[in-house]
Write a protein that binds this DNA or RNA. Structure first.
Lengths: 217, 217
DNA sequence: GGCAATCATGCACTGATTGCAATCACGCAG
DNA sequence: CTGCGTGATTGCAATCAGTGCATGATTGCC
């Protein structure tokens, strides 16, 4: 019971997964995402091409291998937040703990960002993943605001919040300059929260909620 | 100047383009996007499969055939706005005129929305296109706010605005219910603007802008 | 040891997309 | 009216992602 949490099977699978990720990221960095075929990755990871798809549904997904875990983490945090805690505050807390445990020098993360930035297909896929953050966040915010506020407000909040989240990724891209300038990522986050709260506040005072859509049955 | 603005060649090309769009949308509606091959579309439009790609770079793009025109329209509106007019106001104006000339019964638009809503690949592609709106809007807003405000604020504004824009699309989806309830799309837009302005205002009072750096694409 | 659930593969196939080279047709000049 | 040059249309072959299916190899468990 040294490293493995499960049986031999699980450990082996995990090792294969890691091998695929390592091989893929290395090749992507060397030749670029588009110039690397799944067959190349399979060869480098020492598995059959067909096996690749048993681990990742698409070539893109290898790059975002940690998404499910990260998303699950936020989703869980939002769902289990204390009754009085707002979704936005929960998110702030989540980001803080996330930043705390992030190694800005992890070569994997670094190359992940670099490759994504220069590959349209990956940017596209990333947006789709971000949309899931947005959806989860929007749902939580909607709960806070109440159903009578309509569907638009939570979405706007979630959307703006996600934009801030996206900005945080710049810390991977340009970490050197940013860290040298001793900038605090949380300062950005708090700026975003100020914006969100200001917006919500402005709506609270003003008009009621339009867009009811459909009457109860 | 009935239909053709240019020579026969241009008109013919336009006709072919329309034929492709019509054929594609019809087939997509009948069998679904995924169950329609480019070959099917080509056959229905009476062209060679290879020719299809001379008109659209991907199968997805047929569905958003009017994107370039629409985007160009907003971009133009933003760039040519009066010196005193804010980007947000310009956008509101643009949306208003856009809504005014929109036929909510155009079968093309209707099926376009219906198909997109039920096809992951199209939703993904749509997000990518939306990102261009967001970018254009963000750029204009950044100009309004000034460079000293940092890159995050304009992005949040643009992102939230885009969320509102996305909501508007619901008017195609559920137009019956919405129109019956005599809801004004512009009410939604104005709600979004209230949110944005509230957010911006909250920031204006607050601290200056952190976060420099960020290489544009 | 032996059975059932998994996992890894090999193979064949669908379909999008692209590069190339041969044609074809439109618009213009003679 | 006729011949050219340029852009449009095609056919063909090839690359590559992703999928379904059947087979053999492993592993977990009784």
């Amino acid at each position: 019971m040294a490293t493995g949490t499960e049986g031999l099977r699980e450990r082996k699978k995990q090792r294969t997964r890691e091998a695929i990720i390592d091989a893929a990221l290395r090749l992507f960095t060397e030749r670029g995402f588009e110039h690397t075929t799944v067959a190349d990755i399979a060869a480098a990871a020492d598995i059959a091409p067909r096996t690749f798809f048993g681990y990742f549904p698409t070539k893109e997904d290898v790059v975002f291998h940690d998404f499910e875990a990260t998303f699950g983490s936020l989703d869980e945090r939002l769902r289990s937040r204390a009754p009085g805690e707002s979704a936005i505050d929960a998110m702030r807390d989540w980001i803080a703990s996330m930043l705390a445990q992030t190694d800005f020098n992890d070569p994997r993360e670094l190359c992940q960002r670099r490759i994504t930035r220069s590959t349209p297909a990956l940017l596209e896929h990333e947006r789709t993943l971000m949309a899931r953050f947005e959806a989860a966040l929007g749902e939580a915010v909607a709960q806070d605001l109440g159903a009578d506020q309509g569907p638009l407000r939570p979405r706007m909040v979630a959307s703006a919040a996600t934009a801030a989240l996206a900005m945080l990724e710049a810390f991977y891209d340009d970490k050197v300059e940013l860290l040298n300038g001793e900038l605090d990522p949380m300062a950005m986050v708090d700026e975003a929260l100020t914006f969100l709260k200001g917006g919500i506040e402005a709506l609270r005072e003003r008009p009621p909620a339009p867009v009811p859509v459909r009457s109860p049955t």
